[in-house]
Simulated assay, not measured.
Amino acid sequence: MSETEPPVLLTLEGAVARLVFNRPHRRNAMNSAMGDALDAALATLEADPGTRVVVVSGAGGHFCAGLDLGEVGSQDSEAERLAAAQERNRKIGERYRRLSALPKVVVAAVQGAAHAGGLGWVCAADIAIASADARFCAPETLRGLVPAQILPWMVRRMGRSAATRMVLRADVIDAAEALRLGLVHQVASDAAALNSAVEAVLADIRKGAPTAIAETKALIAALGPLAPEGYAEAGALAFARCAAGEEAREGITAFQQKRAPRWAS
């Protein structure tokens, strides 16, 4: 698999659309090319009245490992790093919002790593099903970063207490714990069982009236905003400040070198 392959695959199969993160050599980490491809895929789904269900998954046995850290802090000056990180983080948050706002049922089928920004996709989906090998983590603080755009989605899915523990401890949890915390709705024993579980959900959704399902999603959204007004922009700025700083430089370097970060005391 090389970067010449499309980073996102979108197939429309009648009432079902399948959106696949397609950078398996990077555990489907999100880079700028994937972001552009996701924007195009979301625009297609927003304009397609025939699709009733969107299944989101990852190629190569992983869901999504979050942001590709190779692009963080790659600009020359601190001002450039700040601006690039803020814009990148803002766009990521908007993509979660667009996926959630689709008048279609969104199902996340999760295998392997669902880390950092990958958690955002899991929580922005309406229904999340994981295979037993799935692993979930919000490791941003370990990299000198903050979980800016994923935090509201985690709080909505898991509740404030569970989300707080997860983002502050930054440990890896398995599929069984994710089910207990409400991060996912169902755990399947393996990849084959995951496919079967997703197909069962699709069969159930097809029984519902499309307009009624869309209106129901709109009513759920009307129950209250995801976050206070201005949070997304404040989150993008907080992420940018951290991404442009020395802690992120050390945290990302330590991650790439597979060692513990050496924080200043």
Rank of each mutant, 00 (worst) to 15 (best):
E3I: 03
P6N: 05
L9R: 14
L10V: 11
E13P: 04
G14K: 09
A15W: 01
A17M: 07
R23T: 12
R26M: 10
A29F: 02
A29R: 11
S32H: 13
S32M: 13
M34F: 12
D36E: 15
D36V: 14
L38V: 13
L38C: 11
L42Q: 13
G50I: 00
G50D: 09
T51C: 03
V56Y: 01
G60M: 09
F63S: 03
C64F: 02
G66S: 05
D68R: 01
V72M: 06
G73N: 03
E78F: 14
E78Y: 12
A79S: 15
A84D: 14
A85I: 08
A85F: 01
A85N: 07
A85G: 12
E87K: 13
E87R: 11
K91S: 12
I92A: 13
E94P: 07
R97Y: 08
L102Q: 10
K104S: 05
K104I: 04
V105R: 08
V105Q: 02
V106A: 08
A108L: 09
A113L: 08
A114G: 06
H115Y: 13
H115Q: 06
A116I: 04
G118W: 07
L119A: 05
G120A: 10
W121F: 15
D126C: 08
D126K: 05
I129R: 04
D133H: 03
A134S: 08
F136D: 09
F136E: 10
C137D: 02
A138V: 05
E140P: 00
R143K: 07
R143P: 00
R143S: 08
L145A: 07
L145E: 11
A148V: 08
M154I: 10
R160L: 09
S161Y: 04
L168D: 06
V172E: 13
V172L: 09
A175S: 14
E177D: 14
E177K: 14
A178G: 15
L181G: 06
L181T: 12
H185G: 13
H185P: 02
H185Y: 00
H185I: 00
Q186I: 00
A188R: 03
A188E: 02
A192F: 03
S196T: 13
S196W: 03
V198E: 05
E199P: 01
L202Y: 02
D204P: 00
R206F: 00
K207G: 04
K207Y: 00
T211W: 01
E215D: 11
L219W: 04
A222I: 06
P225E: 09
A234V: 07
A236G: 15
A236W: 13
A238R: 15
E247S: 14
A248N: 11
R249H: 14
I252E: 10
I252W: 07
T253V: 05
A254T: 05
K258G: 01
W263S: 00
A264C: 00
S265M: 02
